[in-house]
């Protein structure tokens, strides 16, 4: 991954403007580069706010639902490392109960099980 792009992703992760989340979702999670998607997912989880966690939990093909196991496992690992997991658990519960896609619901159930074990 380009050093400049890494710097941009990390900066957007620290940026207070909520518009940064939409930029990360638009350019980061849709990137063809696995490294970019991985770093973007990690940054979004570290933000630990509803809008950022929602991107990596409920969207098919992004975050824990990424086609790349490396990206998915990296995102799950980042969620497990959160100090305050309450917002992540809330989103996981909503996804398990209400999401229309079975695969997404299953992934959310697995992540929640890991969280309960940790």
């Amino acid at each position: 991954m380009n050093k400049k792009i890494r710097r941009i992703i990390e900066t957007l992760g620290k940026h207070e403007d909520t518009e940064a989340i939409s930029v990360l979702e638009e350019l980061g999670t849709n990137s063809q580069d696995d490294e970019v998607r991985e770093l973007t997912s990690q940054v979004l989880v570290r933000k630990n706010i509803h809008d950022a966690l929602k991107v990596v939990i409920i969207n098919k093909g992004k975050g824990i639902n990424d086609m790349s196991p490396v990206v998915a496992m990296s995102t799950i690992n980042e969620i497990l490392n959160l100090e305050n997991k309450s917002e992540a658990i809330k989103i996981l519960d909503d996804t398990i109960n209400m999401h229309s896609d079975e695969e997404v619901r299953e992934n959310a159930r697995s992540v929640k099980s890991l969280l309960s074990l940790s």
Partner: peptide, 22 residues
């Protein structure tokens, strides 16, 4: 520039830089 990429930079500039790098 690499030094200009920080939290003081605007989201639009960061996005434009990212697109240009892509």
């Amino acid at each position: 520039n690499l030094h200009q990429i920080n939290t003081k930079a605007s989201i639009a500039d960061l996005k434009n830089t990212w697109l240009e790098e892509n």
